[in-house]
């Protein structure tokens, strides 16, 4: 892309918009809906930068878009100062938006498997909705610590055509299977042949899923998360191996995951650029 083209797309120019709707999804997660024409054209796997005026600017996965109306939703887990401020904001409040940034999931057909952990479910729901009309079968494994942290179960059961294609796991057994998502995954990989596997969630989980799919010589696309500052591939805060998660990702395929396997699920950069354990 030429310099002038990039500037004209306005992807990276901050736009302000008002929150239209806030919905509480769980004790710690709220969904925010607002108008933004650029981000409403986003593809599954892309992210945006949301400015909380005077506080911070944070990267968020895109949950849903209504392209023709220019409407978009993001899900926000309350994890710190910036998200606390956002959780206190109501419809009508002004926020700033940049993006959409990053690459997106390859939209494959056939027998599809998705594995989401925690808020990692968010971009996968967006993807699953996009795939649901085009594909033969969708199986979704979703995992959380406990029942009331399992996200978007209604939307997930709508996307999975048959009920037994939606598998939920909790660490404490309050809902679904009491185990990690990797357990039903291991069973499924022995039983079925999948054309595409997608994942997003805690990186330790992603790493285990990568190792399992490698064992079965299966393709995998994983959306990774890192500390993000510029969102445009400049500052280097989000690098993993030779890749910039914000620009070269956030979605990486099995070949790329293999190139970064030393850092995957092991270390990341902190605010000072120091490599710290995950």
């Amino acid at each position: 892309m030429k310099l002038s083209d990039y500037l004209i797309t306005k992807t990276n120019t901050l736009r302000t918009t008002n929150i239209i709707d806030v919905k509480t999804e769980s004790l710690s997660v709220k969904t925010y809906t607002f108008k933004d024409k650029q981000c409403a054209k986003a593809k599954p796997g892309q992210f945006l930068m949301l400015w909380i005026p005077g506080i911070d600017e944070i990267p968020l996965s895109i949950l849903n878009t209504t392209t023709e109306k220019g409407i978009i939703s993001v899900a926000v887990k309350n994890v710190g100062n910036a998200t606390q401020h956002l959780h206190n904001m109501n419809p009508g409040a002004t926020i700033g938006i940049r993006g959409p940034f990053g690459n997106s999931f390859t939209q494959n057909h056939g027998n599809i498997l998705l594995i989401g952990g925690g808020t990692g479910t968010v971009p996968l729901i967006f993807l699953a909705k996009n795939l649901s009309n085009k594909t033969k079968k969708i199986t979704f494994i979703t995992g959380a610590k406990t029942k009331n942290e399992l996200l978007f179960m209604d939307q997930l059961s709508n996307v999975c055509q048959e009920k037994n294609n939606l598998i939920a796991t909790t660490n404490d057994g309050t809902y679904g299977l009491q185990c990690l998502v990797t357990e039903p995954l291991a069973t499924l990989l022995n039983q079925e042949k999948f054309d595409a596997i997608y994942t997003c969630g805690p990186e330790v989980m992603v790493k285990k899923i990568f190792e399992l799919t490698q064992k079965h010589k299966l393709p995998l696309e994983a959306s990774l998360e890192r500390l993000m500052r510029c969102g445009m591939g400049l500052c280097g805060s989000c690098v993993i191996g030779k890749y910039r998660v914000c620009r070269d990702g956030t979605v990486f395929n099995e070949e790329q995951l293999n190139e970064i396997k030393e850092e995957l699920g092991t270390s990341k950069l902190n605010f000072s650029g120091n490599k710290i354990p995950i």
């Binding site: 901050l14 930068m49 400015w51 506080i55 911070d56 600017e57 944070i58 500052r229 510029c230 969102g231 445009m232 400049l234 500052c235 902190n270 605010f271 000072s272």
Partner: peptide, 8 residues
């Protein structure tokens, strides 16, 4: 640590 966002 640098500054909080927005940094760019």
């Amino acid at each position: 640590c640098g500054y909080a966002n927005p940094t760019v």
